[in-house]
Computed example of a mutant assay.
Amino acid sequence: MTALGDLIEIDDRTVLVLGRELAIERDQPDVANALVHRTGDTLVLVDTGVTTAFRAAIRDAAGRVGHWSRALVLTTHGHPDHVGNNDLADELGVPAEHYVPAPDLDQMRDPASYWVRSFDRIAGLAPLPAPPSALAARVVAICQPMRLFCATTRTYEERPLERVRIGSLRFTGWTFANGAVRVLRSHGHCAGHVIVHLSDCGVLHLSDEGNGAWGAMADADQLKIQTVLGAVATLFEEEQATVLTDGHTFTVRRGPEAVAYLEGLLEQGTALQEAALGLTTDARRIRPSTFTTHYAKALADLGIGGANPNPVFTAMMAVNQLLELGLRPESDGPDTPWSRPALHNPPPIPEGPAPGPRQSRPPSSP
């Protein structure tokens, strides 16, 4: 049984700081794991979680990885459970840099609107404990204090984009600390998501790209999630990475265990899509609430959980699954039927009169 702030020492200069699961009914925020690493004289913090207790645990971990004289704070994405202590960069007493993904700046500045958008999509599909706007405000309120930026915060995108080759694979992203830290664009779990590879200790931090077989957020991209899972599995097979960590499973996976875990997520994703097809094949019009109920049963039958499983996130996954299958709502309003748009050829474009010969312009008068 793990507790908030417990430490897993990966090696003498790398520590995983454990977060905790979400419990909205108890006003308990989820806290994402943070990775603390030293490369040379640089302290690397990957995500900072939330809550003052977790902040203290990160400081404790930073004191265990050896001497450092500069700091690099990397935000994998803008969700509140990953960013609450970002201003630690200002308090470490050494020159520090902090980077965030540009596509996530809007949600970081206005997290309530981001979560309203996510909850509005499932109104009527799951028993929300409060209306979408109130529930979004509650999610933001329990993730306090929220210190998102510091004096040196910049976006990754302000740096020149690099082509990063690791083994047989090619990524785009950014490198730091003379190439020992590689930030790779993934953009699956949400619009700006990145993953982090620490080459000198073999750690690949997946953050929330491995949160389950299917993305839940409104800005999730299922293809990108599954593509990055496959790419990371290849890195482990080629021994370019040897230790897998992430944002919400409170464990460290090594070598073949990491490959099996990633393969399992991919298998679950395809199994879920097959189950969803079975739920939509015989009906032209689908009630999302009915689909969500059967989809939740398919999740249970397949033994698929994911990070922080609950009815709200299951409904968010179900909506994304319907979209992925090509269904669209027929009108506005909660639980309106969804269907596949009719397939037909567009009407022909009417032909106009053929253009006449171009007229030469008379020479202008002197």
Results as ranks from 00 to 15, higher is better:
H98E: 06
P111T: 04
E97T: 03
A136L: 10
S113A: 15
A134I: 10
A112T: 14
E97H: 14
P127N: 11
A134W: 09
Y114K: 02
P132I: 10
L128T: 01
A112N: 07
E97L: 14
F119L: 13
F119R: 03
P127G: 08
V94E: 11
G124E: 06
A112V: 15
D104E: 04
V100I: 15
Y99F: 15
S118V: 04
R109M: 10
D104R: 00
G124V: 05
W115N: 01
H98W: 07
P127A: 12
P132S: 11
V94W: 13
V100Q: 01
D120C: 09
A126I: 05
S113I: 08
R109W: 09
S118T: 06
L135K: 13
R121N: 04
A96W: 01
L135T: 12
V116T: 08
P101N: 04
R121H: 07
A102W: 08
L135G: 11
P101H: 02
A126H: 05
I122W: 07
F119C: 06
L135S: 13
D104F: 01
L125A: 10
M108E: 00
P129L: 15
P103T: 03
R109T: 05
R109V: 08
P127I: 07
L135I: 13
G124N: 04
F119V: 03
I122Q: 05
